[in-house]
């Protein structure tokens, strides 16, 4: 028990002393995961909107595949991206393996299906609700998509948070394509795994606490954003 207390106090000390190594790892984690969520949203939201609004042959099959991809094992994605960017892979010439860019690609592949599938469901519900009113106003095409995305903003923020949670917490994909290289590709989850195995529990616990704080901060921020939107005229 005293050892545990000591580890916790050491971890808190690292956080409040502004340990450079710790904050470098935190910053890279945020950069990689935020980039992945933004790129995933840029790909997933329009595709989700398209699947929610348009009817075309094979749509059901596409939805089934995307829903299935939500459960992609991170290590499988990591392996796929590794093969893609390895020297013998089709994109090996880009020399991205063991770089933050490769980690962003891997996490984007993990979160894009989540963003697409969950936004499709949200937007399909909204599309049913607003179908007649929007058609009565003569709204169609991209204006309709933009309107539905805006009307679903509260739910879509939650979808974004779910995707961010998936990205920031995963370890399998980033450790395969990033390699957990100190000062280059080491992120919170890979660092926790490494430091735990090495016995440096204080740093591992400090990173774990930061991870929890980030989760809390993101959710609190989303709550405040939602409240401010309601105050400014939303329901």
């Amino acid at each position: 028990m005293p050892a545990l207390v000591e580890v916790v106090s050491l971890a808190i000390g690292l956080i409040f002393d502004g340990d450079r190594n710790l904050y470098e790892i935190v910053a890279l984690s945020l950069r990689v995961s935020c980039s992945a969520v933004l790129i995933g949203a840029a790909l997933g939201l329009p595709l989700g909107a398209l699947l929610a609004i348009r009817r075309f042959p094979g749509r059901g099959g596409v939805i089934t595949v995307i829903n299935a991809l939500m459960g992609l094992p991170p290590v499988v994605v990591g392996l796929f991206v590794y093969l893609l960017f390895s020297n013998v892979g089709p994109l090996g010439w880009l020399r991205l393996l063991y770089s933050p860019a490769a980690m962003i690609v891997a996490q984007t592949l993990l979160v894009a299906p989540i963003l697409c599938a969950l936004s499709r469901q949200t937007l399909a519900d909204l599309n049913r609700e607003y179908d007649e009113p929007l058609r009565a106003l003569g709204v169609s095409g991209w204006r309709r998509v933009a309107t539905l995305l805006y009307e679903g903003r509260h739910a879509l923020i939650t979808v974004g948070l779910a995707a961010f949670g998936r990205a920031i917490a995963e370890v399998g994909a980033v450790i395969i394509v990033g390699g957990n290289i100190n000062h280059v590709t080491r992120v919170m989850t890979t660092a926790i795994a490494l430091e735990t195995s090495r016995g440096d529990l204080a740093l591992a616990l400090a990173l774990g606490l930061v991870l929890l704080l980030i989760a809390l901060a993101v959710n609190a921020g989303a709550g405040l954003l939602g409240r401010s939107l309601r105050v400014s005229g939303d329901d």
Binding site: Y130, E132, P133, A136, E151, H154, S232, G233, D234, D235
Partner: peptide
């Protein structure tokens, strides 16, 4: 212009 029996307004202010 058509006003439906159960108007479905946007999640915005009246002015918006």
């Amino acid at each position: 212009a058509l006003v439906l029996q159960r108007p479905v307004l946007l999640r915005r202010s009246v002015a918006a």
